[in-house]
Amino acid sequence: MIRPEALLCPRPEGLYCAPGDFFVDPVRPVTRAVVTHGHADHARAGHGTVIATPQTLAIMAERYGADFAGSVQPVPYGQSVGRDGVDVTLVPAGHVLGSAQAVVAWKGLTMVVSGDYKRRRDPTCPPFEPVPCDVFISEATFGLPVFRHPDDGHEIAKLLRSVQQFPERSHLVGAYALGKAQRIIALLREAGWDRTIYVHGALDRLNHLYEKHGVALGPLAPATSTTKQDFAGQIIIAPPGALADRWSRRFPDPVLAFASGWMQVRARARQRGVELPLVISDHADWDELTATVDELRPGELWITHGREEALLRWAQLHDIKARALALVGYEDETED
């Protein structure tokens, strides 16, 4: 059996596949890149060739312009691309629209790079598909036992109840522009909120892109108006940075909500002045991370980024060989 390090190994640019000559989610410009999903820390501009799902390529083009890479190679879910005996298959990761795990197979060895993933249902993208493998390379953004995300329906109900309790105030929900914002909108629609949802200008293009890819978001309108009172009783979605920005002054006494896994910890909410934390994350929580490893039972667990020490400890206690790659440059769902 070949050593897994011969197939994939950490380099300063990111995880490198020598026999196939490509990087996965490189943080610097490289000749060939496999990109798992469109978040800026995983999908950067300036590579020679980018291999990704058509949705991820569309997101990159929307964010960086059509010339974001020398060339692109769209690989739909379930399909493979091969070179020099190395096969790369993209499989749904359940993180955001287009997000994929990279399944890398070579000479009978299978390694899965999870990218960022979650296990629970998301109306805006297909669910994570577990792939049996020799090495599972996992993220660990929420790799600490305190992160256990509640049911998102419960969190949305909390928001709607607050809207009912405070009809004279507006509810301003901070959500990342790619993925979280659209998921919140879709979840609100599922919960029966069919009124116009107001959105910050920074979300427009990605909202359109989601709709073009078949994710219905219902009536949306820009959060601009001449009178404050127009927003009383309304829900407004904005990128997190805008919550405490001067932009937010246009709303009547807003209830600041923030949809993020970090909101699980009260002190985090307090620090940001969040009055209504919504614990909704696009990442696997502690239970999902450990259950996934338990389900796959890989020969080895590698951890790319996040809080790896706790997941390492857990793997040790469960007799799973594990190592931390300590890749730098991935700061998904950081504070701002």
Partner: peptide
């Protein structure tokens, strides 16, 4: 019920005993 080391790290991160226990 759980590994004291993992609990210790959790408590360090959250900083409040009731809140940590509630979460983990």
């Amino acid at each position: 019920r759980m590994d004291p080391v993992l609990f210790g790290w959790s408590y360090d991160y959250v900083g409040d005993l009731a809140e940590t226990v509630a979460l983990v």
